[in-house]
Computed example of a mutant assay.
Amino acid sequence: MAQDDGGTGQGQRKVVAAYFVSLDGVAEAADRFLTGWDDEVDARGSELIADQDTIILGRRTYDEWVGFWPTSDVEPFASFINAAPKFVATSTPLESEWANSSVIEGDLVEFVKDLKSQPGGDIGIHGSISVTQTLLAAGLVDELQLVVVPTIAPPAGQKKLLDNLPPIKLETVNSAVSSSGYVLSTYRVVH
């Protein structure tokens, strides 16, 4: 699979962070603010995972997902996430086993730098806000794929995706509005 270098000229794998976010930027517990689903959102998700062959997860996301995805029939994501190598950012051993999962040994930033230099498809980050923030701040995320839900999420302790980050320049790659009113946007991080 030929990899688009995203205009970086580096010829490396891309790190792609994908999230559902509310209009006010909340990305945590998206199931609390999702207002519907449509074919365009489904198609965007299928396109996203078609280019990914590796996943980076935070410990909290791993612990939440290991109880659902290994036995899920929500396709095509279930087949994808269960088969893909999953690297988990944590300092403690994984308590529950999930096929193709392993703990990141050492520093997350250094691990991802090394992973990007290896052959393969895109590296996905799904549902792990702190991992995404760390890698964005380190200049290692190449693309943000956001589905903006037209709602304002309740603020009760919900994490926002882009809080507490240094200035980061983005270029809009594409944007469309789905039939449910979701804004589907892809942004390239300008390195």
Results as ranks from 00 to 15, higher is better:
Pro154Thr: 11
Thr90Lys: 10
Gly9Leu: 02
Leu23Gln: 10
Gly9Val: 02
Glu97Gly: 04
Phe87Lys: 07
Ile104His: 10
Pro93Thr: 04
Gly6Cys: 06
Gly120Val: 10
Asp107Arg: 11
Asp53Glu: 06
Ala137Trp: 00
Tyr187Glu: 05
Ile55Lys: 00
Arg32Met: 13
Gly120Gln: 09
Asp5Ala: 11
Arg32Tyr: 07
Gln118Cys: 05
Phe20Cys: 14
Glu75Lys: 10
Pro85Glu: 08
Pro154Arg: 14
Gly11Leu: 08
Gly9Pro: 02
Pro150Met: 11
Thr151Cys: 12
Ala27Cys: 11
Lys160Met: 13
Arg60Asp: 00
Trp37Asn: 07
Gly67Lys: 11
Asp24Ile: 14
Gln118Trp: 09
Leu162Gly: 00
Val26Glu: 01
Glu97His: 12
Val149Tyr: 10
Ile81Met: 15
Tyr187Thr: 02
Ser46Gly: 08
Trp98Lys: 10
Glu110Thr: 14
Ala153Asp: 00
Ser22His: 04
Thr61Lys: 07
Thr35Ala: 12
Ala43Thr: 13
Leu48Ile: 05
Gly6Arg: 07
Gln118Lys: 15
Tyr62Gly: 01
Ser175Leu: 08
Thr71Tyr: 15
Gln145Cys: 04
Asp53Asn: 15
Gln52Val: 11
Leu165Gln: 04
Lys169Phe: 02
Ala138Glu: 01
Ala89Gly: 01
Ser130Glu: 04
Tyr62Leu: 08
Ala78Lys: 13
Ala137Arg: 09
Gly106Lys: 12
Ser96Met: 13
Ala176Leu: 07
Gly36Ile: 10
Val131Asn: 03
Ser175Ile: 08
Thr71Pro: 08
Gly11Ala: 04
Glu40Val: 06
Asn82Pro: 02
Arg188Lys: 15
Glu40Phe: 04
Pro166Leu: 05
Leu136Asp: 01
Leu184Trp: 03
Ala18Ile: 12
Gln10His: 10
Arg60Leu: 11
Thr8Gln: 06
Leu136Ser: 01
Leu135Lys: 10
Ile81Leu: 14
Lys14Cys: 01
Phe80Glu: 03
Gly58Arg: 06
Ala78Asp: 02
Asp53Thr: 10
Gly67Ile: 13
Asp107Ile: 13
Leu94Thr: 05
Val190Leu: 14
Pro119Tyr: 05
Asp63Val: 09
Ser96Leu: 12
Gly9Trp: 06
Glu47Ser: 08
Ser117Ala: 15
Leu140Lys: 02
Pro167Val: 03
Asp142Cys: 05
Pro150Glu: 08
Glu64Arg: 06
Ile55Gln: 03
Arg44Ala: 12
Glu28Leu: 12
Ile49Asn: 02
Asp4Thr: 03
Ser72Met: 15
Thr54Asn: 10
Pro155Asn: 14
Ala50Val: 05
Lys113Glu: 14
Ser102Tyr: 07
Pro167Asn: 03
Gly127Lys: 09
Trp65Tyr: 15
Ser117Tyr: 04
Ser178Met: 08
Asp122Lys: 07
Val26Trp: 15
Thr92Val: 10
Pro76Thr: 11
Gly121Ser: 07
Leu115Val: 04
Asp4Leu: 04
Ala89Cys: 09
Ser96Lys: 15
Leu144Thr: 00
Pro150Val: 06
Asp122Thr: 11
Leu34Asn: 13
Ser96Cys: 10
Ala156Gly: 06
Leu34Ile: 11
Trp98Pro: 00
Ala176Arg: 13
Val131Pro: 01
Val141Phe: 03
